[in-house]
Design a protein around this nucleic acid. Sequence first.
DNA 1: TTGGTAATTAGCGAAATAACAAATTAAGAT
DNA 2: ATCTTAATTTGTTATTTCGCTAATTACCAA
Lengths: 90, 90
Amino acid sequence: MSDIFTTLASSVRRDILSMLKECDMTAGEIADKLTVTKPTLSGHLNILKAADLVITERQGTTITYSLNTTVVDELLANLVGLLSNKDEKE
Amino acid sequence: MSDIFTTLASSVRRDILSMLKECDMTAGEIADKLTVTKPTLSGHLNILKAADLVITERQGTTITYSLNTTVVDELLANLVGLLSNKDEKE
DNA sequence: TTGGTAATTAGCGAAATAACAAATTAAGAT
DNA sequence: ATCTTAATTTGTTATTTCGCTAATTACCAA
C-alpha cells in the first residue's frame, strides 16, 4: 500500500495504466504511444509489476501487459478508506 | 490533479492527512506526533497547502490545519475515474 | 521595547528518481 | 549454429526530493 502512491506519482506510469485500462498491449506498442525510450519504459513497467498493478504474459518474443484489476480495485477501496471515513470512531 | 499523486507519495504527508481526518491540529501538535523536525514538517504542510488538501487558520501565534474535505472528495472521485472503468467499453 | 513562543524560510548534503545509450538476454526462424 | 526481433539489464548523468541545523518572521504579553 505504501509504495502504491510512489508508483502512481509518475505521469508516465499513470498513462500506461490508463492505456491498459482500455486494452492489453505489448511493451513495444506502449512505447510507440509514449515519448520515452524502450529502456525507460521497461523500467516503468518493472515498477508497475513490482506494485502488482499489471500482469505479464509472454507469447514468443513479445510480452503482453494487462491491468491487474483485482489489485486496482483493492487499491481504490484502500484509498477511499484512507481519506473518507468520517464515520470511523477509532 | 497531476501533482496530487506526488503530494500523496510521501508517507509523512499521508500520515498528516490521516491525523487531520480525525481532528484539526496545530503544526506543533502534528510535529509532536511525528518523528520529523518542525522545519521538515513545515515543508510538508506547505506542499499539502499548495495541493489545496489542507486549510489554515491563524489564531495568535498558532496556526491550525484542517482537512479540505471538498478537495479530498474530488480527489477520490477522480481516482476512481482514472482506474476503475475497465468494463466500460463505450 | 524587550522577551518568549510558534512557525516558517534559507541553505546544505545525502538519497532517491528518471532519462538515455550501449550491451545483453530470450525466443523463434532459417 | 546464426540471424532477427522484442524486450530487458547495465552503467552513467542530471534532476528532484527529503531532512537537518541555523537563522528569521509573526504574534502576543509585560
